[in-house]
Amino acid sequence: MASVNRPNKQQNHPLDDLIRKDRIPHIWCPGCGIGTIFASCLTAIKECVATGKNGFDLDKFVMVSGIGCSGRAAGYVKLDSFHTTHGRAIPFATGLKLANRDLNVIVFSGDGDLFAIGGNHFIHAARRNINITVICVNNLNYGMTGGQVAATTPYNAKTTTTPAGNAENPFSLPLLAYASGATYVARWTMLHTRDLTVSINEALSKKGFSFIEVLSPCPVNYGRRNKEKPLETLKLYQEKSIIKNGADPSELDIDMEKGIILGKFVDIDKPTHSEKYDKLYRIE
């Protein structure tokens, strides 16, 4: 065995400079994936700033989030952040971006906030191609309010309000984003953390509306009612996920029997809202 020089004990986590340490430990339950996704987002921001390309600057990053468990992220990040009203994270982000085009605006929120109450804002921001990055933590239910059925709950899943199973069909979020005109669409799970970090990094550098869906376990509300322990959910992600970049957006339903398709589905270039606006109204 090689002899090893132990470095002096370093007491700081590498991301400690980007989180509000006085707020840690955060409110997220043991086994919840939001913390991992949040850490991955911070790592991506740090990597972007470290490369120095596109003039990335920590002072120019803004994190906007709505209401819900994942909405708490804005309160834990040591950057400019904004915790907005329910479902209105994207409108606030749009306003920020329109008022100050130098900002890199990240919307970090949950599926209930972005696709149920904020569904219209999402499709219209994608239609306008506002230059923001949207990270959606999809835990398949309304976690914070007690596990009610959401717009993303799979067919036949048990929740507080559907004790015999959900009779409705869920949204396919990447399909919705693609159909509305997003320029970058990807889906990962919280287990594929490194791919997720790379993907967030790409989305931040991407000009136009970027959307990343991240599947995350909700052990307390969703997992408990559907007999899935958090580690079992992660094992399911490991066994059932199929990485298929460039897959057809119409085949991306979340079906654990068939397997969940992950990857980067859309990466196209389109003029952003500001560019089109300038062409008509700010003629030099």
Binding site: H13, P14, I19, I24, P25, G35, T193
Partner: peptide
């Protein structure tokens, strides 16, 4: 362990 930890507790 560092990237999967949700709590910023291990590195």
């Amino acid at each position: 362990c560092e990237v999967i930890c949700a709590e910023f507790a291990i590195y």
